[in-house]
Structures are given as structure tokens and as C-alpha cells.
Nucleic acid binder design. Sequence first.
DNA 1: CGACCTGAGTTGAAGAACTAAACTCACAAA
DNA 2: TTTGTGAGTTTAGTTCTTCAACTCAGGTCG
Lengths: 163, 163
Amino acid sequence: METRRIDPVNCSVARALSVVGERWSLLIVREALDGARRFGEFHSRLGIARNLLATRLETLVTAGAMRRVPYQEPGDRQRFAYELTEQGKALRPTLVALLEWGDTYLADPQGPSVIVRHRPVEDASPCDEPVKVVLECAAGHSHLAPEDICRTPGPGARFLESD
Amino acid sequence: METRRIDPVNCSVARALSVVGERWSLLIVREALDGARRFGEFHSRLGIARNLLATRLETLVTAGAMRRVPYQEPGDRQRFAYELTEQGKALRPTLVALLEWGDTYLADPQGPSVIVRHRPVEDASPCDEPVKVVLECAAGHSHLAPEDICRTPGPGARFLESD
DNA sequence: CGACCTGAGTTGAAGAACTAAACTCACAAA
DNA sequence: TTTGTGAGTTTAGTTCTTCAACTCAGGTCG
């Protein structure tokens, strides 16, 4: 029997990681989701080296996850800030999934340092319950376990000869 | 008004990334979820350098995401394989989230190369519908958007002076 | 027995990436 | 004119990756 294997390099996970898989990238996105906008904010929050921060921001802007927007404070010249695009905001589930994994298996003895809550931006009476990531299929089956899932070739699949 | 900011370094995302944030780590986990077990399988599927693969596997084993198990093929000596622990399998949502992001924003023109489907391991009539990651709060509100969510300090939070 | 083969690593040299600290640049305020 | 500030850039030193060659333990072939 000849088995065909999906080429693991032609894969959206690999492509995603080429954008956000470098050191600091996801932490920069996390800080942006938490409201950071300016170069110095990212720098002081994360303690990342300045040249790397400049490189990472450029990568994220080029990839379309962030955008460089001019701003000007009164009595100061124009500077630039960085904000997430929709594409960048769409990394939220990835970050929540990582957070959850870290909380579950690598937790601080004191417990998690951050809890993500259901609190819509403009809602006077927020729900405030903790948020989790769940896997759900298009038929509505929810809370799928890792064993309930398999990978199948999609339209863009390339195959490898199995030798 | 003095605002307190959660220390971004004392964070489960950062801790999670210290284990799986290195180049190749998540791809190794992905291949393991897809059935790879042996050193040579990871090597030939991913094209990763052998020494790095050895280092990464060791990191994953040390962190508890994988385990090194002896195996012996008939007429061959004992060798070692690597398999995911529960902790390692729990990275599935993270990988699905990354896959989804990559598919949405960095797709191959032909379409996704991999589709994750709801197909329980031992089920003769699988559902087979595509699987997505969704954010859901403990009160049951599902499909939360990035704006519906905020980060709040947890029991292990450290704070920074805002200067 | 001894030469050769295989899978699973290890070692070493060259190149790429990361860090930290100093430096530049454009403008504003004193 | 001098000083200060945010936003980078440059540079030198360290660490990480890659690639290729080598080791190691056992099995097979002649």
C-alpha cells in the first residue's frame, strides 16, 4: 500500500510561523491587543532590544498584521504609532490558546497572572466570565478533544512520495 | 490617577513561548500530532537539522510535552521514539488557531493544504465537518470577537509601576 | 570473523540572528 | 544656543541555526 503524505512545508501553520513565529512577535501582538501603540511602549513593556523591535514591527507591518499610523501630540512633532489590523487582531485566539496552555502546564505557583474575561467594550453590565478556547466543527459539535480530530488534504495540498 | 499594569514578562504566554516559541518546536508538535514518532521521521518530514532536532526534542521532553519511549523492531536493536504527552496534545488548539490564521491571511492561492475535520478515532460514520477554534466564556457565550474580551489580573499577577 | 549498512544521534565550523549599549535625527522648549 | 525626547540605527559581542561530517550500537552479508 502506498500512502501519500501531505507536504508539511507547504502548510499554513508554517506560513503563519514565518510571520509570528520569530522570537517576540507574538508578545508584540499581545501587547498591542492590550493597548500598546508606540515604539517606546513596546520597548519598555517587553524589554526587547530596540533594533529587534524595529525589525519585528516592520515584519508585522509588511505581513499586514499591523499598520503604521502617524500621530502628533500637542506641542510635539509628528511621530508614528503601530496598531493592529483586523488580521493582527485575528491572532487573539492563538494567544488565548497559548495562554491557556501555559496556565495549565507551566503556571506560576500563585496561579495565572492574567485572566481573559468576556467583557464587551461598550457594555455597562459585563458578563465577566473567564474565556476559553474550544474546538468546534461546522455541524455544531463543540468541545472536541484532540482525538476527535484529524488532518485531511485540502485543495492546495502538495504530496510527498513515501519512500 | 495611578494605573497599574500587569507585568508582561510574568505571563503564561511568555512561559509557553519559552517552550514552544523556538523555531521548529510547534512544527515538531504538529508532526507528532500527525503521527510522527521517530527521530528520522521528524527529520525527513521537516528537513530540520539533526542536532537542532535532537535539542528541540530534548526541550519538549524536559518541558513535559513529549516523552521518550523505547521501541524495538523485529530483528533490530532497541531504539527510542518520541510521543506526545497529554500536555503536548493540549497544544492542538494553538496549532488549529495558527492554521486558521494562516489559511485566512496567508493562504496558498490554491486554497488551504490541510483541513482539520471532526473525525473521532474510532467512529465508523464520522461527522467530517471542518473544525474551527472559537472563544467561549464560562457562562456559555460563544463565538466571542476580539472586542468582546479583556485581560484582567489573576492571582499570580505582578504589577509594574507606571512612570 | 570482518566489512558494510542503518538509524540515531554528536561534533565542529560557518553564517544568521539576538542583545545591549552607544549613537543619530528631527523637532520643541528654555 | 543648549538641552531634552521619542524613535529609531549602528556596532560589537554573544548565542542560535545550518550543514556536513563523524560516532556509536547493533544487524546482515560474504
